[in-house]
Amino acid sequence: MAEAVAEAVAEAVADAALPVATPAARRGRWLIYAVLLSFAVFFLVPLGVVLLNSVRTAQEIGLGSVIGWPRGFAMENYAEAWSRYCIAQRCEGVRNYMWNSLLMTVPATLVSTALGALAGYSVSLWRFRGDTIVFTIMLMGVFLPDQMRLIPWALVLRELGLTNTIAALVLIHTVQGLSFTTLFCRNYFVGIPQDLIKAAKVDGAGFFRIFWRIVLPLSPPILIVTVIWQFTGIWNEFLYGVTFTTGAQQPITAAIIAISVSSPTDVPQYGVQSAAVLLAALPTLLVYFFGGRYFMRGLTAGAVK
């Protein structure tokens, strides 16, 4: 089977350049579409189920199955999830946790991107003694597993008196994001011709002026990529949220876990829970829909000509 597919793919790719497709090539192409489509459906099933359930009432789900076509259109699930649903004995919905997440994600994204751009600029376009060593050490941050960093962070937060605060999460995500943002920006900036920097130096510009006037205006593609990457990564992060915050201080990802531990006597609120999950995922979905284009473009862009 796999061989047949591979063969068909090879044939289709080979034939794609020809103006007139042979019947065999057409068959091959349909096979490719069919395979791709089935993968897409497979990946979208969970989202589909949650979407459908979010507009079904608890009663409807209870009488039927968790997988089913909605009979009505129960938008009250969203209202309930937003402001009334009880999560860990607090019946205020997800809105406060959403707000926590926003307070955590926006500053951490902006600060880590800004510092990463500056660090990447300095590592790529200014040679200084030991610059490769500095960069190598920063890169290690990319490969360090999160679990390893939990205890050091716990100690640091205690020393700083930031235990159970959103500020603590902002600090953690800013610092931990630096490796990635620096790497992204550095890889983009090495494509900027050295002559531009030399010309600016001869013109009399210094480190920050060159960054601000010459390098940053060339950087929107990579800045957008970095912001999207950081925003989705920090918003979706769970481990630090659940480890270092409790109760009202938790970000949405940590708080929403409490949904799954509703008491056994209750009727399962699958509809409201689905709505809550969708609300929690909404910001990253929006970022993807509006920024995804730039993301693809930014990753392949590099040369500044």
Binding site: G204, R213, I214
Partner: peptide, 21 residues
């Protein structure tokens, strides 16, 4: 001294014009 304090001007092979300006 750094380039800016040398009272020189330079023309580069790649022209090195600032693309965003």
């Amino acid at each position: 001294l750094p380039p800016r304090d040398r009272d020189i001007a330079m023309v580069f092979q790649s022209y090195a014009l600032y693309p965003a300006m």
